[in-house]
Amino acid sequence: MMGDRDFRAIIQNSLDSIGRELQLDIDSENLQTIHLQEVVQCLRRSYFDRIDPLEIERRGFNELLSGLLRKQKYGSEPKEFEIGDIKLKGETDMLVDDIVLIFRSAEKEIENPLANDVLYLNACLWIYDKHDGIIVYVSGDRKETTFSVTRSKKMFEEVIRRVRVLNNLLKEQKAPILEPSTECSECQYFERCFMKKKNSKHVDIGEMLGLGKFGGKD
């Protein structure tokens, strides 16, 4: 607080405003158009985002990296890939000299790309009919790590399978199965999938059973 102004709230509102401007435009009623981001992340999360969404706090500009880059001169227009009567809609961050690039933020330099980022880039290669792509991870200290990817049909078939699964479950109004990952604890739907978050307390089994302190002397 400086004076009567809550600058943290002002900054957070600004980030939220930018985020809404850059976020994917997903029509939750159009079940025949599935966005690529929906199927490379947890399907359960994507389902709740459409059926009964909860807002998530935006923590900083790193989360907006891809959206900001798509607005630059190398940004590409969204494209669709037809899967029967379903359309898979994807968008790459940059398309330069037939090379597809996506940018992701990272807390530190990483040794291997994240699986969902590889799935996303590989699918973009098929959607844009390109053969090679690059994932660029940018850490908080502006160091970058790059990984090159050549498109894989088998990997794209897995994305297509997930498109069909999400499409069917949205029609049936059935939540997808759990896909536990390290991202669950930060997900806004954590309590729908697991238990309500509480501060844990230590319970002495011996005292609970009337036997005194567990492990104590006779």
Results as ranks from 00 to 15, higher is better:
28 S>W: 01
125 L>Q: 09
58 R>F: 11
56 I>K: 11
53 P>Y: 10
49 D>R: 01
150 T>H: 14
208 M>G: 03
200 S>M: 11
63 E>T: 08
125 L>E: 07
128 Y>L: 08
200 S>L: 13
63 E>V: 05
201 K>S: 14
111 E>W: 02
98 D>N: 15
212 G>M: 05
142 R>H: 07
147 F>L: 02
102 I>V: 11
11 I>E: 09
89 K>E: 13
60 G>I: 07
78 P>W: 03
200 S>C: 07
42 C>G: 00
175 A>N: 01
7 F>T: 05
100 V>D: 01
164 R>V: 13
97 D>L: 06
84 G>S: 02
34 I>S: 00
51 I>Q: 13
163 V>F: 13
192 R>D: 10
171 K>D: 06
204 D>P: 00
114 L>A: 13
88 L>D: 07
178 L>I: 09
105 S>M: 06
74 Y>L: 11
216 G>F: 03
133 G>S: 08
155 M>C: 04
115 A>S: 13
117 D>P: 07
203 V>Q: 12
44 R>D: 00
168 N>A: 14
86 I>K: 03
80 E>M: 05
28 S>M: 01
89 K>T: 06
73 K>Y: 12
125 L>N: 06
100 V>H: 02
194 F>Y: 15
178 L>V: 09
218 D>G: 06
91 E>T: 04
64 L>G: 04
142 R>E: 05
154 K>C: 00
100 V>Y: 02
117 D>L: 07
163 V>R: 07
119 L>R: 09
81 F>V: 00
18 I>W: 06
128 Y>K: 07
179 E>Y: 10
130 K>W: 06
20 R>G: 13
190 F>Q: 06
40 V>R: 00
9 A>Y: 06
95 L>W: 07
177 I>S: 15
145 T>M: 11
216 G>H: 10
67 G>R: 10
103 F>T: 02
7 F>C: 04
87 K>N: 14
85 D>C: 03
140 G>H: 13
54 L>E: 15
215 G>L: 11
51 I>L: 07
66 S>V: 13
110 I>T: 05
127 I>S: 06
209 L>E: 09
132 D>K: 14
211 L>T: 00
112 N>R: 10
197 K>S: 12
127 I>P: 07
208 M>T: 15
213 K>T: 13
131 H>M: 04
101 L>R: 10
172 E>I: 04
90 G>K: 11
115 A>H: 09
140 G>F: 10
38 E>H: 01
199 N>P: 06
70 R>I: 04
105 S>L: 02
73 K>S: 13
24 L>P: 05
109 E>L: 15
47 Y>C: 00
218 D>F: 10
94 M>G: 06
59 R>D: 13
90 G>L: 12
126 W>I: 05
69 L>R: 10
123 A>C: 14
200 S>P: 11
159 V>F: 12
29 E>D: 13
194 F>C: 14
68 L>P: 02
111 E>L: 08
212 G>C: 06
4 D>L: 10
